[in-house]
Design a protein around this nucleic acid. Structure first.
Length: 147
DNA sequence: TAAACTCCTG
DNA sequence: CAGGAGTTTA
């Protein structure tokens, strides 16, 4: 689900985890999950952006996120270990945008500001797309595997 | 104020 | 991932 939405609202979570009986605790736990997901995501982005800079990349347009790049492998390993899901194309685009966003910010020296990442987060949170209906089913994993 | 976030740690 | 502290936001 993270491949589609990085910032799901609590209402959205309730819809997509229809088999779960929500209470304060469960809700905050799921919210926490996505927070952790984002953390890993952004950390990877920053890491690869800095790596690109060290490797002598000069322009953000030289940075690209494809299905065979190292960054993609790291993300897929983390969110899609068993390769059960087909990662949507849109996710690659968002990842690339994020990577370039970090790249530009670092090159511009904005990382001296303690809260320099907030500007990037603000951009990325606008890039959530709709999650396919299948994910609403409690058995979505099985159903997806049968396709 | 309470929910939701980030940041740091285990 | 989970917990906790501290901040932001509605």
């Amino acid at each position: 689900m993270f491949f589609y939405t990085r910032y799901p609202s609590s209402n959205m979570l309730k819809i997509f985890f229809s088999d779960v009986k929500f209470n304060r605790c469960i809700t905050s736990q799921l919210i926490k999950w996505f927070s952790n997901f984002r953390e890993f995501y952004y950390i990877q982005m920053e890491k690869f952006a800095r790596q690109a800079i060290n490797d002598g990349v000069t322009g953000a347009d030289e940075l690209t996120v494809s299905r065979d790049c190292e960054l993609y492998r790291a993300l897929n390993m983390h969110y899609n270990k068993a390769n059960d899901f087909e990662v949507p194309e849109r996710f690659l685009e968002v990842a690339q945008i994020t990577l370039r966003e970090f790249f530009n910010a670092i090159v511009a020296g904005k990382d001296v500001d303690p809260s320099w990442k907030k500007a990037i987060y603000k951009v990325i949170c606008k890039l959530d797309s709709e999650v396919p209906e299948i994910f609403k089913s409690p058995n979505c994993l099985q159903e997806l595997l049968h396709e």
